[in-house]
C-alpha cells in the first residue's frame, strides 16, 4: 500500500522522532576520536546514573541541557548538567 501524506508544509512535521538508529547516526556525526570518548565502563556507569535521574526523559533525553544522554555519556569531557553533578 502506498504511504499517503498525513502532514504537509509545516517545519515541525519534518523532524523525525528519535530512535536507536537516529541516535547512532547523530553520535557518528560527532566524529569523536577514540581519545575523546569515555571508556566503556565510564559510558555504562554514566548511562546507569542518567537512567535513574529525575531529569532523564526516556528513552534518550536529558532535560537539564537537551542532550541525548548516549552522546553526553560518550563524550569524555562531558559534565553532568544536574545541579548536584551526579557524575
Amino acid at each position: 500500500m502506498i504511504e499517503v501524506e498525513t502532514r504537509a508544509g509545516c517545519k515541525a512535521c519534518s523532524i523525525a522522532p528519535l530512535d536507536d538508529e537516529l541516535v547512532q547516526s547523530l553520535a557518528d556525526q560527532m566524529d569523536l576520536m577514540p581519545s575523546e570518548q569515555s571508556s566503556p565502563q565510564e559510558y555504562e556507569s554514566r548511562l546507569s546514573i542518567c537512567s535513574k535521574c529525575s531529569s532523564f526523559m526516556p528513552r534518550y533525553t536529558c532535560l537539564m541541557n537537551g542532550a541525548i544522554v548516549h552522546i553526553l555519556a560518550l563524550k569524555k569531557k562531558s559534565v553532568c548538567p544536574h545541579p548536584e553533578k551526579l557524575w
Binding site: K11, I15, A16, P17, L18, L22, L26, A27, Q29, M30, Y60, T61, N65, G66, A67, I68, I71, L72, K75
Partner: peptide, 15 residues
C-alpha cells in the same frame, strides 16, 4: 533564526 540544532542534542528540542 532557525539553525541546525546543536550537535548531540535532541533534534526535536530545536536548541
Amino acid at each position: 533564526t532557525w539553525f541546525k540544532t546543536e550537535p548531540g542534542t535532541n533534534p526535536g528540542f530545536l536548541y
